[in-house]
């Protein structure tokens, strides 16, 4: 244990000298010592508060309840998920992003930022070389092992794990605090909440008489929707998908909400038996039309098949409001005249 402490001290000094190659090498030895991550963070705090001339630090708690030590003033951040990138731009801190992933294509400026790999395969060396104050990771798409690797390299990792609209909004508020841009984030959050409120008010309790609704929907006032993620093989959304809540807000219900796993491959027999009233396609290259099994479903017969941009419905970011508005208007057109 003593060797580990000594090594850590050496490592810390070297890090401040920006000697990255050595850091990586030493941290390998450090990893071999098997020090628990939490202790690492605490030590970090002790040192920064006891020494003068060091950047002022603060401790924040992320979505997984981890205590993360970051500089009070963030100037260099890396995002490892497109949803996080969109959120950071939304709170007006996009100019402080020094790295993002190849999937980060929105807003336009995000494309010009240095790529550190894709969401599943970020390049460790590139990340270290960019000297980030903090790396943002999405719990929805990131590998846990990668988070711990970054932790062990002494890089602060903040995990965002939103699955509902209100959690996305909470994340935007958090980002405002982290980047010190509360003014912008509060304004953005206010706008998003207004738009959500408007949808809820417009939909109200859904009126019953509509020939296109099944008996069940006439009772509960919801459209039974099948969300098709890809046509062949047939993938859909299941129990764990964040879209379930969004659909509920849009006056709809996923017919596969009880199927386990977030993105299950569904039996075509089951799919045929579901008889959805509407189908939402993710509009990716392999998802341009409903699967054959739906050819006799009410959705296809009544022409209630809609495409929503795959990026928007697969990212728990600020554009979820766009998806909500679009779905609500598609499914309840008479309400939005």
């Amino acid at each position: 244990m003593m060797e580990c402490r000594a090594l850590f001290f050496v490592r810390k000094i070297i890090r401040q000298l920006n000697r990255f190659a050595l850091v990586t090498f030493l941290s390998l030895i450090f990893v071999a010592c098997g020090r628990p991550v939490a202790e690492n963070v605490n030590l970090n705090v002790d040192r920064s508060s006891s020494r003068s001339g060091v950047v002022p630090m603060r401790i924040i708690t992320d979505d997984l309840g981890r205590r993360v030590t970051i500089p009070t003033k963030i100037t260099r951040a890396i995002s490892l998920a497109p949803s996080v990138t969109e959120s950071i731009f939304a709170v007006g801190a996009g100019d402080r992003l020094v790295g993002d992933t190849t999937y980060c294509n929105y807003p336009e400026e995000a494309k010009a930022i240095q790529k550190v790999g894709d969401t599943l395969n970020p390049n460790m060396e590139t990340i270290v070389a960019l000297r980030p104050d903090v790396v943002f990771v999405s719990g929805a798409s990131q590998l846990e092992t990668f988070t711990s690797t970054l932790d062990k390299n002494g890089i602060a990792v903040y995990v965002m794990n939103p699955s509902r609209l209100d959690e996305v909004i909470h994340n935007l508020e958090q980002l405002g605090i982290i980047f010190g841009s509360e003014d912008t984030s509060q304004k953005v959050v206010g706008e998003l909440q207004d738009r959500e409120m408007k949808i809820t008010e417009t939909l109200g309790t859904y009126p019953v008489p509509d020939e296109q609704l099944s008996d069940y929907d006439k009772r509960v006032g919801q459209v039974r929707v099948f969300v098709q993620i890809s046509k062949e093989p047939l993938f859909t959304i299941g129990k764990g998908a964040f879209l379930n809540d969004l659909l509920r807000s849009a006056g709809a219900r996923s017919v596969t909400a009880n199927v386990s796993s977030a993105f299950p491959k569904l039996s075509k027999e089951t799919a045929l038996a579901l008889q959805p009233d509407a189908i939402i396609l993710s509009d990716s290259p392999d998802d341009q039309e409903p699967n054959e099994v739906f050819k006799d479903s009410p959705a296809v017969k009544n022409g209630r098949v809609y495409k929503i941009n795959a990026d928007i419905i697969s990212r728990p970011g600020p554009r979820l409001i766009d998806a909500l508005e679009e779905i609500a208007k598609d499914l309840h057109p008479e309400k939005f005249k």
């Binding site: 047939l234 491959k265 795959a310």
Partner: peptide, 15 residues
């Protein structure tokens, strides 16, 4: 997205 169906098919898929 283009290769999703292919990867599944590669594992052996009769669906």
């Amino acid at each position: 997205a283009k290769l999703r169906s292919f990867t599944f098919w590669l594992l052996g898929d009769l669906s």
